[in-house]
Amino acid sequence: MARNETPLVMPGNSSCAGCGAVLIARLVTEAIGPNQIMVIPACCMGAVATSFPKATFNVPVLRTAFASTASFLTGLEASAKAKGQEVTLVGFAGDGATVDIGLAALSGAIERGHSFVYICYDNEGYMNTGFQRSGSTPRGAQTSTTPGGALGRYKAEPRKDIAKIVAAHGIPYLATASPAYPADLTRKVERAVAVKGPTFLHIMSPCPLGWGFPSANSVELARTAVESGLWKLYELDHGVLRLSLSPKKRKPVKEFFAPQSRFAHLSDDVYEELQRAVDEEWTTIEKEGFSLRCETSRA
């Protein structure tokens, strides 16, 4: 294990200052350790993975095309079985590669029950290509393809909830996590590695450039998302659903939205509406317990 003395994510890589995704990559990679093979599709971490001939990750990484993270994991699992190889297979993909273009492959791979850890670091849009909207961009966000403009065309639709979609497959283990709660994140990654069959982690990944906030605030913003009740930390372990954390005194949701330039156009009316929606959701959770039922409308 001498290799552990050197970092598993090398410093001086090409990630932006304050990048949430590379922080998540470091926490995840360190939690799993050197006996892993990573698959990274087109996404921010795909770009960060190499500055040829130097590699950022100190574990084997197989780069793949945008839609193919889960199908690469499928093939790797089959080959590992054929070779009798014991290794953790990790998919590390952004939200675009997961909830949009790679969704069919992900769904198929989970349904077939292959053993892998799939990490979706969710920076809520196509950040590597200049902040276009994805299916995971929250309602109201300004992106380069929902620019607002004279007609106020911001993203009009609520994000799709990938964790619920994944849960609907009856996946053995699913969790949400946040880089602001590294101990919780690490524990969940370790659990995912231990579980046989497909596992999925959905991790909020603040993006200073795309979301428009100072790079120092990445972790703080991720924490505010949890403390305001917007980003729920939970896990679904073989059918048992559990909240990892219930913020006792929730911060106003405005504290999450207001520092980000992509929400700069939101009025107090909207904040009140967003606050009301979150409050209602948590009132229900407190009354009826936490569930993954489908709300008709989400923030």
Partner: peptide
């Protein structure tokens, strides 16, 4: 200088873990 000739290249782009891939950041 490690890639002065065509036969210095592996058949696929192979990158090895190293600090400072993006320079002295």
């Amino acid at each position: 200088t490690a890639f002065a000739y065509l036969d210095d290249y592996p058949i696929v782009a192979t990158a090895y873990p190293g600090e400072g891939g993006a320079g002295r950041t």
